[in-house]
Nucleic acid binder design. Structure first.
Length: 928
RNA sequence: GCCCUGGUGGUGGAAUUGGUAGACACGCAGGACUUAAAAUCCUGUGGCCUGUAAGGCCGUGCGGGUUCAAGUCCCGCCCGGGGCACCA
């Protein structure tokens, strides 16, 4: 009986679907376990073998946990709003919803072939209006919330309004932009528009000006990703930094809690670290500098208030609005020129370029708050408008960027902390004694910082402050294929759509690109007005918002929707939310470290504050899976000719490297020349210089991508080797977290293993299972495996458990073991990894129920106890020989035994060892 | 530039966290079965030296250090990968 994997896999996939084997509902008998994958964006290219890596890992854990007695929720869905579908729509005129549907169908088909234990009854799509109705609803909740710093929570905006009505801003401690003070009486006299304007400064979703990459030729905003050297990647048009009115989210209110929460969750340390860096908490002081001859102050934030006497100039970000006010007439022209130049550079370019120093004097001076000296004010692009106040007090002696600036423009560099050589470089170390600093002289830096803050506060020129790098998240996108923001404008005032009128569905438009005037695509819609009376969207009523939500909106709460995906009266029933709680295990790529994973935590904390959910953190444990890289094949063409040279001739000629489809190259890097000629029209008449009668390509490991023709499709692997082989191989490839190159040739290893396992069940002709009791050796093989697998799954070390399976099956095969009491536990242990073959052999063993219902076997450690150990004996740390000794021996006894050995005496050659180190059950080391 | 991460045979990787470097596979070489192939099974396989064997030397990116003992710890470099706020 052969291992007919195609038949077996079809059979069991149909069985699981028909019996809804993995449907999960709240119940009280078993503990719950929520296993989540980062849901995919359904791209037109379909899945390649890299995508399922994390899904296979989470599926193994899900199946394992079920067999360990947990009620497991393991859902899947699609993050189906996004830019690629929109780009495609712009090019082809095809509605993105259509392409998205096609892509999802393809994804589903591909996923089904791999045999995942997803509960498909829970599927969600972020682009379906049943779903985004609730994304819009959450937006409205955020709009109707403010951040109370006293309770350190987001609260209903009604409470803020009632505070205004009773006390005005008196006694209010709220997070707010550009605070305006007023009394209760004044509040009552404000008109609606004014009230809204005030409230907008408090709302958690709000409108404000922010800087974007604007490309006027494309009439759109671009991601940093889409901008290369100040030009758009598509078309190469100029891109400038431009201020725009945008919807934003006040994530900064949650900065400290997002930081603190990291201590309570089990995430990879590097990932936590990048969130910490992103949040960027720094302690210091804000200090105000008066501008000479103007009734104006410049506020700066500094982490080194101790160096305040070392300030010899100030620098403003070129975009800082103060620049217009303070600049002297004679400098205006050069300033505007400098600003134009700066606007062509992206923030990242500005940060990356530390070698070029540039700046421009404004002609204005500030007054030092202590020394009262005049300090020149410059603008410079190393100061970023988006961080701090967009202005710095420059201490060139103790900050390297200030130092470089001062050197370049010949500004004095007064030293205020002892040490270093400030003629050569800035002395940045946060240690040393203060000098030339009036009341700070003689203090250690640490002491000086607190003393400086104390005096700054006393003199009322500033105060101690904690600053965060985390900025509020821009929420509006000038795109079509996203959730409409449920906002309309009444007399210029932004109001949210009534909850009972949700969803506001995406309107039909004649094209998916921006309008001629550079307005977002939704401005094209004819019927894009809202009537708050009846909820109708059409040609009557108030204008609806034109921008849509960013990609991260839908993905910031989808895990909650999985608990109750078809609920139409609530985003999820609280019973379900409470039962499933937060995600126990989340698997996905580390590229989401600071985007999705931070925004989700933000929304989760917000929803908790407002009482909709109970958990503070959404994802308790998180694992990052690595990338599977493609092994590209490259041929080399002689420059100017249609002639290709084999690998060994490359160095002798000038060649161009060309990527060739990996399917045209075999495992020994040999090119199929005929297939290659037919691959593209221009290759029909190509000539080839061979070596040993073959044409050999070179290989390169890089990201799997259509562009490099190195994509391997899981469907092909399932067809040729089966889903179980694919699953096993992806896990066998290496540690889950690591990125590793794909090599289809290696699949024969795990495929051979599965065949070997299959043969344990039959004698070549028919099923042949022995009821005999297992031998000691067989039990030891089995239980060594069980111990390893139990440990490895808990540590997500799947590659090593697969080698344990191989070792076990090799041993059982050598012993020709076909005993039920060995094969049954072995089969259950294998079933999370290779579920199809396991179901089949389970039924061959006579079981009627799915193996997913079986209990995972536990290792009996008593079968594994050894009585002796083969001690390695090392001389001077180098292993020379081994000796088998009982484990019961004491240190001294071991030493005696070893020193008495003939070989050891030979090695010693009469010398007396200086030391003998005995580590029981580890090693013996003799030092000569 | 900044932050994070990795570097071990021809290849993917293993190494109980300081204690036998190279488990398990791929590939390669040789053999058995076969008319032949496929499939399967067996043997060998880090490098170098010694005719073989016994044995010896070298070996975890590079250079130092700590230790009886370093792939693992410390210091300084080199190279690859990921992220850096509108890709998802």
């Amino acid at each position: 009986m052969d291992y007919k994997f195609r038949e077996i896999e079809d059979k069991w996939q149909a069985y699981w679907a028909e019996n809804k084997s993995f449907k999960a509902e709240p119940e009280n008998e078993k503990p719950k376990y929520f296993v989540l994958d980062m849901f995919p964006y359904p791209s037109g290219a379909g899945l390649h073998v890299g995508h399922p890596l994390g899904y296979i890992a989470s599926d193994i854990v899900s199946r394992f946990k079920r067999q360990k007695g947990f009620n497991v929720l393991h859902p899947m869905g699609y993050d189906s709003f996004g830019l690629p579908a929109e780009q495609y729509a712009i090019q082809t005129g095809q509605h993105p919803a259509k392409t998205t549907d096609v892509n999802i169908a393809r994804y589903r088909e591909q996923l089904d072939k791999i045999g995942f234990s997803f509960d498909w009854s829970k599927e969600i799509r972020t682009s379906s209006s049943d779903y985004y109705k609730w994304t819009q609803w959450i937006f409205i909740q955020l709009f109707n919330s403010w951040y109370n710093l006293d309770s350190d929570k987001a609260e209903n905006i009604e409470e803020l309004i009632s505070h205004f009505e009773n006390f005005g801003t008196e006694g209010l401690n709220a997070d707010c932009e550009g605070e305006v003070l007023f009394s209760a009486e004044q509040w009552k006299e404000f008109n609606e528009a004014k009230k809204e304007e005030v409230l907008l400064n408090y709302r958690l979703s709000y409108r404000s000006k922010s800087t974007v990459n604007w490309c006027s030729e494309l009439g759109t905003v671009l991601a940093n990703d889409e901008v290369k050297d100040g030009k758009s990647e598509r078309g190469g048009y100029p891109v400038v930094q431009k201020e725009m009115m945008q919807w934003s989210m006040r994530i900064s209110s949650f900065a400290q809690r997002l930081l603190d929460g990291l201590e309570t969750i089990d995430w990879p340390e590097p990932l936590k670290e990048s969130q910490r860096n992103w949040i960027g908490r720094s302690e210091g002081a804000s200090v105000q500098f008066k501008v000479k001859e103007k009734d104006l102050k410049i506020e700066v934030f500094t982490t080194r208030p101790d160096t305040i006497f070392g300030v010899s100039f100030m620098v403003l970000a070129p975009e800082n609005p103060l620049v217009d006010i303070i600049s002297e007439e004679t400098f205006k022209e050069s300033i505007n020129q400098y600003r134009t130049e700066a606007s062509k550079k992206s923030e990242r370019d500005r940060m990356a370029d530390v070698k070029t120093v540039s700046g421009q004097f404004t002609g204005a001076f500030a007054i030092h708050p202590f020394s009262k000296k005049e300090i020149p004010i410059w603008i410079g692009d190393y100061v970023l408008a988006s961080y701090g106040t967009g202005a710095v007090m420059s201490v060139p002696a103790h900050d390297s960027r200030d130092w470089a600036f001062a050197k370049h423009f010949d500004i004095p560099i007064p030293q205020v902390v002892e040490g270093g050589n400030i003629n050569k470089e800035a002395h940045e170390a946060k240690e040393g004694i203060l000098i030339n600093s009036d009341f700070l002289n003689g203090l250690e830096v640490k002491m000086a910082i607190s003393k400086a803050i104390e005096v700054i506060e006393k003199e009322e020129i500033g105060k101690g402050k904690i600053n965060f790098r985390l900025r509020d998240a821009i929420f509006g996108r000038q795109r079509y294929w996203g959730e409409p923001i449920p906002v309309y404008y009444k007399d210029g005032v932004a109001l949210t759509v009534k909850e009972e009128h949700l969803p506001i569905e995406l309107p039909e438009v004649d094209a998916y690109k921006p309008t001629q005037d550079g307005e977002p695509p939704l401005a094209r819609a004819n019927a894009w007005k809202y009537n708050p009376e009846n909820g109708q969207v059409g040609t009557e009523g108030y204008d609806l918002e034109w921008t849509t939500m960013p990609g991260w909106a839908g993905s910031s709460w989808y895990f909650l929707r999985y608990t109750d995906p078809n609920n139409s009266s609530d985003f999820a029933d609280s019973k379900n939310l409470d039962y499933w709680g937060n995600v126990d295990l989340y698997i996905g790529g580390s590229e989401h470290a600071t985007g999705h994973l931070l925004y989700s935590r933000f929304w989760n904390k917000f929803l908790k504050d407002r009482g909709f959910i109970k958990n503070d953190e959404p994802f308790q444990k998180l694992i990052n899976q690595g990338m599977i890289l493609g092994t590209s094949a490259i041929v080399h063409r002689i420059k100017g000719k249609n002639q290709f040279v084999s690998k060994s001739h490359i160095n002798n000629c000038q060649t161009t490297a060309i990527h060739v489809d990996v399917s045209l190259v075999n495992a020994s890097d040999e090119l199929d020349i005929e297939a290659f000629k037919n691959w593209r029209d221009d290759l029909k008449d190509a000539e080839f210089v061979l070596e040993d009668g073959k044409f050999v390509c070179t290989r390169e490991v890089e990201k799997m991508s259509k562009r490099w023709y190195n994509v391997v499709n899981p469907d092909d692997i399932c067809e040729e080797y089966g889903a179980d082989s694919l699953r096993m191989y992806e896990m066998f490839l290496g540690p889950l977290e690591q990125s590793k190159p794909w090599n289809t040739a290696g699949l024969s290893g795990v495929h051979g293993f599965l065949k070997k396992y299959w043969r344990l069940f039959n004698n070549g002709e028919s099923i042949d299972i022995s009821e005999e009791e297992p031998s000691k050796e067989e039990l030891k093989s089995l239980h060594t495996l069980l111990k390893k697998v139990n440990e490895d799954i808990s540590n997500f070390s799947f590659n090593t458990s697969i080698s344990a399976f191989m070792i076990c099956v090799n041993e059982l095969q050598a012993a020709s073991c076909s005993k039920r009491n060995i094969l049954e536990p072995l089969t259950i242990a294998l079933s999370p990894f290779a579920p199809h073959i396991a179901e089949e052999t389970w039924s061959l063993l006579g079981h009627k129920q799915s193996i997913s219902q079986a209990d995972f076997p536990v290792a009996d450690e008593s079968l594994l106890v050894e009585s002796s150990f083969a001690y390695p004996v090392a001389i001077n740390g180098k292993m020379k020989l081994k000796v088998d000794l009982p484990l019961s021996l004491s240190k001294d006894e071991i030493q005696k035994e070893v020193m008495a050995m003939e070989k050891v005496i030979e090695y010693l050659a009469g010398k007396e060892p200086k030391r003998v180190i005995v580590v029981p059950s580890k090693i013996v080391n003799i030092v000569l």
